[in-house]
Amino acid sequence: MSIDFGQKERTAFDLSGKVVVVVGAGQSPGPGMGNGRAISMLAARHGAEVVAVDLNPAAVKETVELIVAEGGKAYAVEADVADKDDCQRIFDTAMATSGRVDGMVYSVATNPPFDFETNSMTVENFNYGLNVNMLGCYHCNLFAAQCMTKNPGDSTGSIVNISSIASMKNEIGMNIGLMPYALGKCGLNQITEIAAVQYAGDGIRVNTLMLGPIDSVLANRDTQELFGVDADEATERHNEVVKLKMGRGTVWESAYAALYLLSDESRFMTGQQLRLDGGATLVR
């Protein structure tokens, strides 16, 4: 069914009646907010029923409570995306509870523990980082698409994979602690393009939202831990990467970009890498 985008009464970015799974909807410890939580809240504000997924049950419960307090619809699913069976269970739960999946956002990232002094990491931690940052993305894309193919109509679903400019360039530093993250996001970018081709015939769109220096709780905490700097120096490093005068982006700007990719307004976009980076990747 065609969409009349020129209709005067049309409500922009309306997700009413849609079920959106946000993988990584919880919150890392520390002040501020994460991208996954902001995306979950904004999707609910625009009418979606949100399936909020996270490894941390307390954090994802808080996200659900914030949504419900605003009058939105949401429920929590605890899952470890490093486990294929857990990834499958996410979408089995969504189908059993909500009856459909219209959108999926993979907003998960981890920087595994490492030895800063020796710049070393165990093989187990390195592999776990790749499993979370990349393999979990593959499984969630696969299982989400299998749900979306059951939806009627020409446009059956939208998948948004959250990546990072760390997959393209490095300006704030590099060590073994960041490698599973950077390599995982490189793989995620490729997963997006392959899945976009694979599922286009089913009416499923798959896009990457590539984030630059966003002022998120995870970015602030991990930059300090990865490079042994304090909060002020971490902020300074991030600000130096941004080419725009206004400085770093916020998680709400990430959320609005994800909202566009989830909504019908982006129905003609698939297999793309939308960079929200303040111009950081203009010069390589």
Rank of each mutant, 00 (worst) to 15 (best):
L55V: 14
L55D: 07
L55Y: 13
N56V: 07
N56K: 02
N56I: 05
N56F: 03
A58M: 09
A58E: 14
A59I: 02
V60G: 01
V60F: 06
E62I: 07
T63S: 08
T63C: 11
L66M: 13
L66K: 10
I67R: 01
I67M: 04
I67C: 03
I67P: 01
I67N: 01
V68H: 07
V68T: 12
V68E: 12
A69R: 10
G72W: 02
G72K: 00
Y75G: 02
Y75P: 02
A76W: 03
A76I: 06
A76E: 05
V77H: 03
V77N: 02
V77G: 01
E78A: 14
E78H: 08
E78G: 08
A79R: 01
A79G: 05
A79F: 04
V81R: 00
V81K: 00
A82H: 03
D83V: 15
D83A: 12
K84M: 13
K84R: 15
K84S: 08
D85K: 15
D85G: 11
D85Q: 14
D85E: 14
D86Y: 09
C87P: 01
C87M: 01
Q88D: 10
Q88R: 15
Q88W: 10
R89M: 11
R89K: 15
R89Q: 14
I90E: 00
F91R: 00
F91W: 04
F91C: 03
T93L: 06
M95C: 07
M95G: 06
M95I: 14
T97P: 06
S98A: 14
S98W: 04
S98H: 04
G99N: 02
V101F: 04
V101Q: 01
G103R: 00
M104I: 06
V105L: 06
V105Q: 04
V105Y: 03
Y106N: 04
Y106A: 05
Y106F: 10
V108Y: 01
V108F: 03
A109N: 02
T110H: 08
T110S: 09
P112L: 04
P113L: 07
F114A: 03
D115N: 15
D115A: 11
D115T: 12
E117T: 13
T118A: 15
N119F: 12
S120P: 07
S120A: 13
M121L: 12
M121Y: 12
T122W: 11
T122C: 09
T122F: 13
T122D: 12
N125G: 10
N125D: 14
F126N: 05
N127A: 12
G129Y: 08
G129S: 10
L130Y: 06
L130W: 05
N131E: 12
N131K: 15
N131P: 05
N131D: 13
N131W: 10
V132D: 00
V132A: 03
N133S: 03
M134L: 14
M134C: 15
L135S: 11
L135N: 12
G136S: 07
Y138A: 08
H139P: 06
H139I: 07
N141D: 13
N141V: 15
N141E: 09
L142V: 09
L142G: 07
Q146N: 11
Q146T: 08
M148Y: 01
M148N: 00
M148G: 00
M148E: 00
K150W: 10
P152M: 06
G153L: 07
G153A: 06
